[in-house]
Write a protein that binds this DNA or RNA. Sequence first.
DNA 1: TATCAATCTAGACTATGGTCTAATAGTGTT
DNA 2: AACACTATTAGACCATAGTCTAGATTGATA
Lengths: 210, 210
Amino acid sequence: MAKFLIADDHPLFREALQGALANHFSELTLREAEDLDSTLAALNKDDDVDLLLLDLHMPGSGDLYGLIRVREDYPLLPVAIISGSEDSSIVAKCIGFGALGFIPKSLPSAGIAEAIDTILQGETWVPKETRERLDVISDEDQELARKVAELTPQQYRVLYFLHEGLLNKQIAYQLGITEATVKAHITAIFRKLGVYSRTQAVLVAERLQL
Amino acid sequence: MAKFLIADDHPLFREALQGALANHFSELTLREAEDLDSTLAALNKDDDVDLLLLDLHMPGSGDLYGLIRVREDYPLLPVAIISGSEDSSIVAKCIGFGALGFIPKSLPSAGIAEAIDTILQGETWVPKETRERLDVISDEDQELARKVAELTPQQYRVLYFLHEGLLNKQIAYQLGITEATVKAHITAIFRKLGVYSRTQAVLVAERLQL
DNA sequence: TATCAATCTAGACTATGGTCTAATAGTGTT
DNA sequence: AACACTATTAGACCATAGTCTAGATTGATA
């Protein structure tokens, strides 16, 4: 009896994936989540989830932040990344940051089932095309990912806007808080990332493609 | 009677390249340069150079700045990039920014001669391994490169240190000028790049891998 | 030589960024 | 319930960033 959690903001895709899985797995319990917060909440409630199917692009989080965050909180949970893109450098980063598999949305349902079987056996699965191009993630990037995982969701949002090149005033408006609070968050981000200016913080975010 | 300009800071490599070329081209005039300034000076003096062999890593300039700069000043001059690395994304960027060829230093001399023959005929030459991976450079990146080419050498140096995450005070010390001057350069950089904060300027530099 | 244009330089001034301190609210623990 | 711990909030204060103005230098050109 397998229990999966599907985290994807697209209801139609969740439904399609559910259909594909139901055909392949006879006994199956599915949970759903539509953003990072509800994903973490679901994982917190259900401690016996066998596999997380995690969309890369989720509202309220940068591309890799969701994965990094989940890996930090639940290091033993198998995670398969679901993504519309299949750029090999993205695939490499996902695997490097601890995902067991990378499943492109373009994959037909039989392929998806096969990929998930592989992953449930504890093996890595990535699309054929990218199988030979898995550049290793450097130790420094691993270290940076660990640091980014320490950011709170609000701090992460601030870092996101920082990375967009926004002024503190603009970030404050976007998040509906005062500029003073934004500054406090930024100072906390600096501490956690081990940098001392917004420029360096942005470079860290850029390096991890957050 | 061909005339080439070799721009590489490594005297030994210039010599080796010279030997390889002399064997293949019967009539050959060679000019040499060891940094970006002397390269531009040599091009300015000799207006009948047939080919520039340009090292990617040159003292006093970021990786792509030399190419961007030369292409801006001499758009008709064929340029072959010489480089120790042969990372496909770098190759793609060089070709995208107007180089006709990309010659890895690891190539045996017969291969180098063949590559240069191809380039002199006006065709593009890149290493076999990267031939199928030449992602196109986006229009925005082309536009950004055009803007970066407008920077003066000193402004470029400031942008370089900006991208390292240095404070204005530190940049001033590195360049031996006052902080006020650094600020003036930074304002000029903003104007030319069309941005309004150092963070955004750094993101532009990052995007072009300068 | 005179002159125009561009670059480099820098001081004075204003806006933005960043630190320190501290209060509030939520969370899990004993 | 009392406790420690952490996230979030923000005001006051100082440092850094960025703009405006302007003089000095260089190089090309008439």
